[in-house]
Design a protein around this nucleic acid. Sequence first.
DNA 1: GAATTTAGTTGTAACTTGCAAGTAATGATC
DNA 2: GATCATTACTTGCAAGTTACAACTAAATTC
Lengths: 148, 148
Amino acid sequence: MENKREIFHILTRRFGLLNKNCCSIGSFEISTIQSHILYEIDKQHAPSMQQIAEALAMDITTFSRQIQTLIKMDLVKKTPSTQDKRVSILNLTTPGKFVATTIEESMNAYLEEVFSHMNDSEKETVLRSIELLNVAMSKSTVCCTPLY
Amino acid sequence: MENKREIFHILTRRFGLLNKNCCSIGSFEISTIQSHILYEIDKQHAPSMQQIAEALAMDITTFSRQIQTLIKMDLVKKTPSTQDKRVSILNLTTPGKFVATTIEESMNAYLEEVFSHMNDSEKETVLRSIELLNVAMSKSTVCCTPLY
DNA sequence: GAATTTAGTTGTAACTTGCAAGTAATGATC
DNA sequence: GATCATTACTTGCAAGTTACAACTAAATTC
């Protein structure tokens, strides 16, 4: 059972590669982090800068500049909050929504293909296992605790 | 069953964070990529630059410079091959071995802790599932095919 | 209403990245 | 066996990413 580390290493590397490759949508060149930002803005409802930066465990200054480039690319828009004028509310623009959806779809297509190599009971088991793993990792005190 | 993407997204992000956090060993500050390089050199027997760069899907020029800094840190040594003088053979130095082992151990400790939140049958199932997943991903034509 | 905290932005300065263009060694071809 | 092509790796850029420190402006606390 000591191949645990090896198994996880391969899995990690593969996901790393997947993220690297994922992200050229038409004329848009999207980096890994940018795709995560789009995903997270899409998921949360009208989030602030801080919220997304924290969700992605990014330094706020780095995040600020990433948002600036996403705005220049017309994928994200930023509106000052009416309740608290310090806060900037983030939203996807129409092209931003399109890019996020496209990434989403290609990711789903990839997962469909991966799971097509399994039978139904295997699919079921694997998905349940990943959920189990997510829960177990969220309980860990070692790493990444403030996440989800 | 359409939370598939969501489940995998969380998993991916967590592994991303894990990799980010992993790598301060005593006085050494090791980046994610550097730890992957050390791991890969350790695993393969006296590999060439190309071999490792390819295994990690890195641009060879980027890799070349990474190796230069690892050599400066005295974690890696580079010897010209006797068979082919163009080729450089990579090996870990003693401190390099130490760092690789330490990362290995802290990774194992983390995994132990994660799995401690499961019962034996769950552990078994999850590990088997990850293996299944690795195999399925290796069969995919969409991404990352030349890997393992 | 002065002092502190919070949200976000800029100034650097160090680092990473990858393309283009290079060197040096090997292999292929005639 | 001289020439041409290929391979392994290195350097010159130029663009981008990162995070610390120091800033502004708004909100909260006391």
